[in-house]
Design a protein around this nucleic acid. Structure first.
Length: 258
DNA sequence: GCTTTTGTTTCGGG
DNA sequence: GCCCGAAACAAAAG
């Protein structure tokens, strides 16, 4: 699930548990470790306290008095808080035990995982290829960014090096709310269309942040796309669907003719 | 067996 | 260099 709003939710979980010493780090499945051994993860963090966490796009950066934990949740990851005696889930991969409970990185598919940077400079290097966070993207940024790319609108929106945080569901939802066809060349959008797109992006992000997910509302594309016979919540037209670079892309051929 | 899945990276082709 | 699709990573559901 994790796109920008989901990761923001995980950031809030972590933010509620800063300041307490890390009693232990348990790596239940080293298959999620990226560029760090279980031993180094543990020795670097034990006794340290998590500080205010930061999110950039789909990355969660958790400084811990020097070292920085970087989490990427792939398609199935999560970070949740549990009482110390909570039974383990089969997909719990790494557990940070604090005095009054534990933080768990749970991830079925292990497509991404847990990184450790020695300091904030090294952490920044890990995410330096990302574009600006989608929440920080001004309309002028968006105009410049779209104008510079010949590719399709949706592909451009989901390219993390262009802007960070938008995934498959968000991109489709934003295009739908903006009445724009996701297959259009990005650079062909007119100025008013970019304005509409920018407004739709912020509206979708704001509502999704509240829900800590892209809410599957009946009035949204996201709430309609998984029906057996999906129809547009606005006009009732059967939704169009195809694969775009391996991602399922859904749009309304009537509302999003252009 | 097969296909599908809300992410990212790499590779080959145009 | 840009853009695209396919494959790979991995696990589960239908």
């Amino acid at each position: 699930m994790p796109e920008l709003p989901d990761v923001e939710g995980f950031r809030r979980v972590l933010a509620e548990h800063t300041g307490e010493p890390i009693a232990s780090v348990s790596v239940l499945d080293p298959g999620v470790l990226r560029g760090v051994t279980a031993r180094r993860l543990s020795t670097s963090l034990r006794g340290h306290r998590f500080e205010e966490p930061h999110r950039h796009g789909k990355w969660l950066l958790a400084p811990a008095q020097g070292p920085v934990v970087l989490l990427h949740f792939g398609m199935t990851g999560s970070l949740t808080w549990h009482p110390l005696d909570d039974p383990r889930h089969r997909h719990d991969r790494v557990i940070w035990a604090l005095p009054d409970g534990e933080l768990r990185f749970r991830d079925m598919r292990k497509l991404q995982g847990v990184h450790l940077a020695a300091n904030s400079k090294e952490a920044d290097e890990t995410v330096e290829n990302l574009g600006p966070d989608a929440l920080d993207l001004s309309r002028d940024d968006l105009t410049a960014t779209l104008g510079a790319h010949r590719g399709r609108l949706k592909t451009t929106l989901t390219d993390q090096t262009i802007t960070a945080g938008l995934g498959n569901l968000l991109a489709d939802e934003i295009c739908w709310q903006a009445h724009l066809n996701p297959l259009r060349p990005a650079r062909d959008l007119t100025a008013p269309e970019v304005t509409t797109l920018h407004r739709a992006m912020h509206r979708v992000l704001r509502d999704s942040l509240k829900a800590e997910r892209v809410p599957p509302r009946k009035t949204w594309l996201t709430g309609a796309r998984d029906a057996q016979t999906p129809t547009c919540p606005r006009c009732g037209t059967p939704l169009e669907s195809r694969r775009l670079s391996g991602r399922r892309t859904v749009w309304c051929p009537t509302c999003q003719a252009n």
